[in-house]
Amino acid sequence: MNFCNFRKKIIAVVGHYGSGKTNVAVNLALKLSESGNKVTLIDLDTVNPYFRAADAKEKLSAAGIGTIIPEFANTNVDLPSLPSEINRVFDTVSDKSMPDEYFIFDVGGSDGAVALGMYNKQILASGGCEMIGVINMYRPLTDTPETAADDLREIEEYSRLKVTSLVNNSSIGVETTTDTVLRSLVYANKTAELMGVPLLFTSYIESPNVALSDDETFFKMKNATKQIF
């Protein structure tokens, strides 16, 4: 099965702060685009002042991926405003005469999902969305299947939408090794079981220290995090 065969055109990437949502969302956008799909990435993060999908705008544009970015992202304006351009997503998805296009929402961590909840009615009216919960066993507040599931349920409450699948993005940043990833598989499967949803794949950032496949089970990603030194 190709994990890129999403049934819904709206894909919301949610999860705990720092679980790696942005990396997953950006790489998913690149993968879907490589497979010949029209893709737009929406930075819906109203929480993070610095590290966010907007940082990958150039890389995404170069790959032919559209972006919808909050007007004040990466500025000094600490205002959680969202662009009206987002409404285009629902118009496009609802209008059968429009060409198929995937819309990937990179949602802010935990209570940042309130921003997604704002569009709850439009999402449901346009046929619902795939909501991917990103989990990371090496984040202290979601380091067990129980706490990870609790966090996702909180996100469901904030967004008034249901998590439909999980991505295991367990990582300790630059020190991630093959073993780091493999040790998280039991955690990932157990969390998926608790949530009652399928685990789509386990993702990792390409690195000389990680020797894993790039197939249906494992998803090799390029690091989309802004490098400052």
């Binding site: 984040r139 020190e175 780091t180």
Partner: peptide
């Protein structure tokens, strides 16, 4: 085995 976790600077300070 490493006991390391992945954190934001602000969180690490708080913990």
């Amino acid at each position: 085995m490493s006991n390391k976790v992945l954190m934001k600077g602000n969180e690490a300070l708080a913990e």
